[in-house]
């Protein structure tokens, strides 16, 4: 029928331009690392302040063998995952509700808009005051930091839906619950994922920050303690681990998005 095969065929072709883009994406960070290593070996970079990449990797291997690094990573990951679930769940629910109901939106949007731009790390002392110095405050700060972001992107996802979808639903007898489940939720999912991905970045920033301030475990704590004992290489290990965690989390969300949204074109 009218041209279904052609759309498929166009996919998967890699043009010369795309191949060059991929090459550059790998070559540029690799080039920086090589230059860094060479400059360190030549003594142009002072190893006390900027250790060579090989030194950092060596320290990382050592810290992994002692179990110190895996421990701190696991602690931080657990906080992020729990806080993420705790923040994103209610945010999606409330965001859908605000997108669907004008009165709910009118009542809550001013509060959300006011709370959204507050740097969440500034709320951390208050959260410690309420939840104590234990895990609850770490999980709490992550939840708070992504809540508003996910809420707002969910709401705008519903608002951006073409009114035609709601018309079809109502014309075929959908009640409020069916509209929620068959239009608002699946229709807003792409935007919800955008919110989750941005939120994941926020969550990592906030958890490392929170661990720097008041914690005895986690990657942020590792960096802070390394500073106190002047272990510059260990500080770099902490930064590297954070970067890798961010990359892994983004890749995981991308993977989930493709699994959950098979209906999106390409």
């Amino acid at each position: 029928m009218d041209g279904i095969g052609r759309k498929r065929a166009a996919r998967g072709d890699v043009t010369g331009g795309q191949r060059r883009d991929r090459l550059l994406a790998v070559a540029s960070p690799a080039g920086v690392l090589v230059a860094w290593e060479v400059l360190s070996r030549l003594g142009a970079l002072d190893a006390r302040f900027v250790p060579a990449p090989t030194t950092i990797l060596h320290t990382m291997a050592l810290m992994t063998r002692t179990g110190e690094l895996p421990y701190h990573i696991l602690v931080s990951v657990r906080r992020v995952v729990l806080g993420f679930l705790l923040g994103a769940g209610p945010a999606v629910g409330l965001g859908l509700l605000m997108g669907l109901s004008r009165p709910v939106r009118s009542a809550l949007l001013p509060i959300v808009s006011a709370a959204y731009p507050i740097p969440k790390i500034a709320v951390y002392p208050l959260i410690i005051f309420y939840l104590g110095l234990g895990e609850a405050s770490k999980v709490g700060i992550v939840a708070v930091s992504i809540f508003f972001l996910v809420l707002l992107s969910t709401m705008s996802g519903v608002l951006a839906l073409d009114p035609a979808y709601f018309k079809i639903a109502r014309a075929y007898g959908a009640d409020a619950r069916a509209v929620f489940a068959t239009v608002a939720w699946p229709g807003a999912l792409p935007q919800i994922f955008t919110g989750l991905k941005l939120g994941m970045g926020f969550a990592l920033i906030v958890i490392v920050g929170a661990e720097l301030l008041g914690s005895t475990s986690g990657i942020g704590y590792l960096i802070w303690r390394s500073y106190q004992i002047f272990a510059v290489d260990a500080m770099f290990v902490g930064l590297l681990v954070t970067a890798v965690l961010g990359w892994v989390a983004a890749a995981a969300l991308d993977w989930l998005e493709h699994r959950v949204l098979p209906w999106r074109a390409s």
Partner: peptide
């Protein structure tokens, strides 16, 4: 039952799910 102009299907549903939509109620 209504057939609309332009957007007539839910992009997040397969043909089967779209056609079954009116039967839910």
């Amino acid at each position: 039952a209504v057939v609309f102009q332009g957007i007539s299907t839910f992009p997040w549903m397969t043909v089967r799910q779209n056609v079954a939509y009116g039967l839910r109620a």
